[in-house]
Simulated assay, not measured.
Amino acid sequence: MAKKTTFLSLILLFFTMGFAVAAGEGGMPVLPPAPVSLSEKLQFITNSYVMVWIAVGVIVLFCRAGAGKLTMVPKGFQNFAEWVIESLFNFFAGILGDHLAKRTFWFFGATFLLIIISNYLGLIPGVGTMGWGMDSHGHFAQPLLRGGNADVNMTAAMAFTFALLWFYWAITENGLKGFLAHIFAPKGKFGGLMVVVMAFIFFVVGVLEVISIAIRPIALSFRLYGNIYGGEQTLETLMALGGKWLAFLPALPMYPIKLLVGGVQALVFTLLCAVFLKLICEHDHDEEHGEEH
């Protein structure tokens, strides 16, 4: 499923970029494939950078509003905020188990909220279509804002952050010896010559697993980036078909789909991360504690 999704995402990315080039040659607007710096002195402050911090601000306001006046019996916005957080925790606990979920929910919950809010902020009218520096076709060459996840730097940062945390969690849960054994050691009991044969086979499988682990951050990065950038480029091109005054009309039917895609992509990114962690931490702490008691 993960490989199929990655393949389809890459196809969407290449198709969209090719479509964008063709559209640009025909006079339609093309979203820049790279973020635009908003400051000559501070080059790292880009239009996608600003959108990510706006998304962070929305999350902070959400948390402040939900925890502003806590009561034993939640009501109003506190009730909604607790429902969101509890639903997310139960979802990841169903995959990881209570022990791992309690340990890692700070990352998975925050990442899910950051991705979905960034995706939805990118759908606000004006994002990617307002800016400065007209090109030869009369379109903005430098958008003031662009979707945070339409920048591969953002998606790569989240993916490689997870990769580092994956190693930390995997080693601390299994121990270094158990971590290496999980990848390279033969599974099952063998005797005689089969020990040597199976050791060699599982070593080769372990090497392939290491390659797979190395590819995961790249696949996670481009899956999310390809879907979000491709979707925004599609909306931009559709809006150009409506002219100056009816630009919203051709793109309007795409908005429900983009809302769905924004949520699904946030779910897919965090779900795959949770599954990758679960696969390396297969032992169940709850069962072990239950046997001790």
Rank of each mutant, 00 (worst) to 15 (best):
T5F: 06
L10M: 10
L12C: 11
E25Q: 12
M28R: 09
V36C: 08
E40Q: 15
T46M: 10
T46H: 09
M51N: 08
G57I: 07
L61E: 00
F62I: 10
L70N: 09
T71I: 05
M72V: 01
M72D: 04
V73T: 14
V73D: 15
P74A: 11
F80W: 08
F80Y: 07
S87T: 14
S87L: 11
N90T: 09
F91M: 13
F92D: 05
A93K: 12
G94T: 13
I95G: 11
L96M: 10
K102F: 13
W106H: 00
G109K: 11
L113D: 08
I116N: 00
L123A: 03
G126C: 07
V127R: 04
G128Y: 06
W132E: 12
G133Y: 02
F140Y: 06
Q142H: 11
L144S: 03
L145N: 12
M154S: 09
A159T: 02
F160W: 05
F160S: 01
F162P: 06
F162H: 09
A163Q: 10
W166E: 09
Y168N: 08
Y168T: 12
W169A: 05
I171W: 08
E173L: 09
K177P: 02
G178M: 08
A181C: 04
I183C: 03
G191R: 02
V195Q: 08
V197H: 04
V197S: 02
F202L: 02
V205R: 12
V207N: 02
E209M: 13
I213S: 04
I215W: 08
P217C: 03
I218G: 03
I218N: 02
R223P: 01
G230P: 13
Q233F: 07
Q233M: 14
A240Q: 00
G242S: 10
G243M: 13
K244C: 03
W245H: 14
L249N: 04
L252D: 06
V261S: 07
G263Y: 11
V264P: 03
Q265Y: 07
L267E: 00
C273G: 08
A274Q: 05
A274P: 07
V275R: 13
E282Q: 13
H293K: 14
